[in-house]
């Protein structure tokens, strides 16, 4: 297991956001995290990367307690793409991706760091934008740049917080295909929170369904995305059908309260 969380709890003051969360992430696995707004998906991801510190429980990465690692060591193990990013001063795409090499070189980039950046630009087909300012790109392209930045960290675990929510269908598929591709080629593990249940079902190896700060269900698409679960977690009547080996979730209407 790459990542192992045991009985984690997090809250702000008296409000508990995450209760007794235990989960695992295997090698070369894409774990899709789904759940309604406010279920605790972002909080869970931020706890794993120690952006915020959980009050209880343990988070083990490759058997090591994350809280005891230095921030540089942690950055070599975990990459993270937050939801909204606002940069004040303009930066080029190349420089932005190069930032991901921070844990690997202290101050000045070596040739191999530039090579790594070039690899990533190639992998994500961003070559033609390399010298453009990041604020000149479209939302989908920016998202790819941020993923490229997290990937150049060469961490084994990649945390993506709603990477495709603001993208068009083509960019959604492109970004998620890229994620699958790097998982396959580099054997990294990805934890991705995602709102679109069909995309989650299609691109994840395993799913984690959250509800009110706890893990409601976990497992394969067929076992998690049942009409009963969706009704309980989202309060939505949905039909689940199967076509060509994939599950399709068609939301019907909100459950009358």
């Amino acid at each position: 297991m790459r990542l192992k969380i045991k009985a984690m709890e997090f809250g702000y003051g008296s409000v508990t956001i995450l209760k007794d969360v235990s989960m695992e992430l295997a090698e070369s696995e894409v774990l899709g995290v789904v759940g309604p707004n406010g279920a605790g998906k972002s909080t869970l991801i931020r706890c794993i990367d120690r952006i915020i510190s959980p009050q209880k429980g343990s988070i083990l990465v490759d058997g090591g307690e994350i809280k005891k690692m230095s921030s540089t060591d942690r950055a070599k193990k975990i990459g993270y793409v937050p939801q909204g990013v606002a940069q004040v001063f303009p930066t080029t795409v190349f420089d932005t991706v190069l930032m991901g090499r921070r844990p690997h070189f202290g101050w000045w980039s070596r040739k191999e760091d530039n090579e790594k950046v070039l690899d990533m630009l190639e992998l994500l087909h961003l070559e033609q934008f390399a010298m453009r300012g990041i604020n000149e790109l479209s939302g989908g392209q920016q998202q790819k740049v941020f993923i490229a930045r997290a990937l150049t960290q060469e961490a084994d675990i990649l945390l993506l917080d709603e990477p495709v929510s603001a993208l068009d269908i083509r960019h959604q598929l492109e970004v998620l295909n890229v994620v699958r591709k790097v998982v396959k080629e580099r054997g990294i593990s990805v934890m991705i929170s995602i709102h679109d249940l069909n995309l989650a079902s299609r691109f994840s190896d395993r799913l984690l369904m959250m509800h009110n700060g706890t893990i409601f269900a976990t497992g394969s698409s067929s076992s998690v995305f049942t009409p009963e679960n969706i009704k309980q977690v989202y309060g939505v009547e949905a039909n689940v059908s199967r076509h060509g080996g994939r599950n399709y979730i068609a939301p019907d209407k909100p459950v009358e309260e």
């Binding site: 931020r46 990367d49 120690r50 952006i51 230095s70 921030s71 540089t72 060591d73 942690r74 950055a75 070599k76 975990i78 990459g79 993270y80 793409v81 937050p82 990013v85 606002a86 940069q87 004040v88 001063f89 930066t91 420089d95 932005t96 930032m99 991901g100 921070r102 844990p103 202290g106 101050w107 000045w108 941020f146 930045r149 997290a150 960290q153 945390l159």
Partner: peptide
């Protein structure tokens, strides 16, 4: 200052992203 210049570059990506890249 030069030694911290690179970290300050990274701060511009936002505090959370910077933390995830190992910059406190």
């Amino acid at each position: 200052l030069m030694w911290k210049a690179w970290d300050v570059n990274i701060l511009d990506a936002g505090d959370e992203a910077a933390e995830s890249m190992g910059v406190n």
